[in-house]
């Protein structure tokens, strides 16, 4: 079995550079993929995840740069997006310290999906998405208009957010099984 390959990228947090950054990162990842992987199918997932991680950073982090640590192994792809910008607040949760692990905060809900932030520890949450039944009446006027977290959650096998208070470090982590 080949050894995992890791690389850190330092990227500008700007709207104009997203497309070129995504192309650079996708090129690196695809070159490391093991032979057994359906590259076309997995490339779609990786691309939409990278687009949304970087877009989210521009919208919310408020920093000039962002770090991406990428590891590709025989079994999975692990992407950590890190910045020292604004702390992410999931829904009405202002501090993870007051919630027990397993607590679910509803972030968004419409006739297609419910999105939750599930507390995993006093520093980490996991994003979870549930699809509504096809019989659920669809109120078109209530459709959500923010899809970033939903896309990353549905395109990945695990999507978490961790905040390091001491360092002021935000880390969004994505795992994709291969």
């Amino acid at each position: 079995m080949a050894e995992p390959v890791s690389k850190q990228f330092l990227l500008p947090n700007s709207r104009q550079s997203i497309k070129s950054s995504v192309e650079e990162l996708l090129d690196f990842i695809v070159k490391q993929l093991p032979d057994h992987v359906n590259k076309e199918a997995i490339s779609f997932k990786i691309e939409v995840i990278l687009i949304e991680l970087l877009t989210n950073g521009i919208k919310h982090a408020g920093t000039k740069e962002t770090f991406l640590d990428i590891t590709v192994s025989e079994k999975n792809i692990h992407i950590d997006k890190k910045d020292f910008g604004n702390r992410y607040q999931p829904g009405n949760i202002t501090s993870l310290l007051i919630y027990d692990p397993g607590y679910r905060e509803l972030l968004t809900k419409d006739g297609l999906h419910s999105m939750y932030a599930v507390v995993e520890s006093d520093t980490q949450i996991k994003f979870v998405c549930e699809e509504m039944d096809d019989d659920t009446p669809l109120d078109v006027g209530n459709l959500m208009e923010h899809f970033g977290l939903l896309i990353i959650t549905k395109a990945s096998d695990s999507f978490t957010y961790e905040y390091d208070i001491a360092k002021g470090l935000n880390t969004f982590s994505v795992f994709i099984e291969l």
Partner: peptide, 18 residues
């Protein structure tokens, strides 16, 4: 190339027309 922000704009226009 499309991102979630533009997708949100499409949905917003859709809701307006509906």
């Amino acid at each position: 190339y499309i991102d979630s922000s533009f997708l949100g704009s499409i949905v917003s226009v859709f809701k307006h027309l509906i």
